[in-house]
Design a protein around this nucleic acid. Sequence first.
DNA 1: CGTGCAATTGCATTCGAATGCGATGCACCG
DNA 2: CGGTGCATCGCATTCGAATGCAATTGCACG
Lengths: 348, 348
Amino acid sequence: MSEKTQKSTRARWKRATSYDVAELAGVSQSAVSRVFQDGASASKQMRKRVMAAAGKLGYRPNAIARGLITQRSNMVAVIMSQQTNLYYPEVLVQLTQHFSNHRIRVLLFTLKSEGDIDSTLEQVLQFRVDGIVTAAMLSRAQLATVQDANIPIVFYNRSLPDIPSNSVRCDQEEGERWLVAELFDSGHRTFAIVSGPEDSSVSTERTTGALQKLREKGVDGVTIVTGDYGYDSGRSAFAGIVDRRGGPPDAVIAANDVMAIGCIDEARESYGLDVPGDVSIVGFDGTGPARYAAYDLSTVRQPVKRMTEAAVSMLIDRIGNPELSAEKRVFSGERIRGSSAEFAADLD
Amino acid sequence: MSEKTQKSTRARWKRATSYDVAELAGVSQSAVSRVFQDGASASKQMRKRVMAAAGKLGYRPNAIARGLITQRSNMVAVIMSQQTNLYYPEVLVQLTQHFSNHRIRVLLFTLKSEGDIDSTLEQVLQFRVDGIVTAAMLSRAQLATVQDANIPIVFYNRSLPDIPSNSVRCDQEEGERWLVAELFDSGHRTFAIVSGPEDSSVSTERTTGALQKLREKGVDGVTIVTGDYGYDSGRSAFAGIVDRRGGPPDAVIAANDVMAIGCIDEARESYGLDVPGDVSIVGFDGTGPARYAAYDLSTVRQPVKRMTEAAVSMLIDRIGNPELSAEKRVFSGERIRGSSAEFAADLD
DNA sequence: CGTGCAATTGCATTCGAATGCGATGCACCG
DNA sequence: CGGTGCATCGCATTCGAATGCAATTGCACG
């Protein structure tokens, strides 16, 4: 009872330290420290005494001070480019989840714009994180800065060609090639592409993959318009395509699901087209809305769970052993057949 | 050139400290410290010398060490309950964005289950965050723990009645009353509710609001089924409703947009019903998919931007001045009229 | 040219916990 | 009963930066 009052009054004074606990328990500070560690040696009774004192004072080890002396913050930075892409939040949650299984916390950094990276990186470095997962592209110089600081880093869904660096990604090009091949084989002959923002490397890869296969199939005259990964940009992109071509193409390849959905809505509402009867529209990512019955999107799903697991374990390995050589892991997406590929399904 | 090699070899040795910089620049460590602070006094030439040395060594102030001495970590914890609700990622991104404008970083904590809170809270406290924003409910005891530790905390979209605590939330009950009133006034007479998970206080409030208004209008025999905020649960919820009632009601009130969309798809696909012709379905949140033309959902949008801004400034105020008394801010949602309220639109 | 005041700078200490090393205790063995 | 080895514990130091206080410098003014 008197303890309770003591607690609340003390609160505004100062938080209990290991010295306070040591004093109350009549032991040394080192003893307290050891009791609160995993592999440290401490007798049973010592534990009991210390824990009792700690409980009475509401003591908790100070992770900041611990980090200073151990040179381990137990925090990793996750850098995300601020995008309308519905796909990333899921990635973030999964990463956090997996890291927490290893008693590591996530310090979150979002970029207002890509130009923001330098100052963001500066922050990241100041916080002495144990590692970095980035879903934003870094320049060579920026990567060098990180490596000079000796901080392990894993790229998520992007990779620097010809530079030794760790990355986990989904094979965007392959996925697009699948989609295009199936569309072509089921009779589609005229195509349009809705790409993502110029500075999105993911979008670039997807467009490249699609164009590759189209060229291989001998298709040309492909209309390309740019969107921002958002729903509205999908709608106006479709309008732009029809406008530019003087009519709808056989198929539209959108750089992500959300824009694909935008295209579908625009096609149906503003042009009275039947999707997938008159025009087929495919997306990418396999996010929630792709499954909604009204769209039943044909798309490629990124194996987010496995990818995030891979990123986490890769980073943790390198935190434990910085000498590990670089590694790139590439995952195939999972082909999800929606309505637009109904013909194609026969071919399996 | 030789500097470069020096850099990379030194990397594995040790990171530069303010002492290293001081030595190289021929000044005291305090001087270095002052140069890297905002309001500190340092002459122009001093800055120049120090910055030059710092640049040469790739020095960056150590935020961990700084936090230890200043008693400010410049980090806040954001606690999110791990839910299928599509709405939260947006909240998270916005919070991070706003905090970063104040040079504060977000340490992210997600809960596997609600029971997880105690251990999570322990972690939060150990990291000596400057404040907490929680989108998960805490028990009285848990809140007391946080307050004893003298850490300001703001509840997001939940509040403890009769307990002085800071919160920012959207008036869920009011929003539901609006929706129900409009449905009733436009002729709907039989109702069903799809609630969220039992332990979601947001869901509880929404259900309460809806039932309030329904009772007020003299409607009873309301079917209530439980979902998990996910699309599939929306679909099966609708099936459950039809099953239980032996037919569809005039209107379904879903606890969030995603489940509303699930209901719509199930109604159309599995029961061949016309939405909103045969049955009206409303949601809550105003997330992206609500706008998709295929659904054109009638819903209430939470003013996320203003709410997150409010939460951030509220928290920062209390970090600066812990004596500030508790405050609860309640925002009205924004009524979004979709197809299900077509009649109702006349009444305005 | 002397005096006074303000702006700089350095010294020494502090934040809170971890850890190498030496000291102590205890059990067990010959 | 003396000796050996291991488990425990405390002492003292360390991590890297901030800051109160004192010392120094610079500058303006009379």
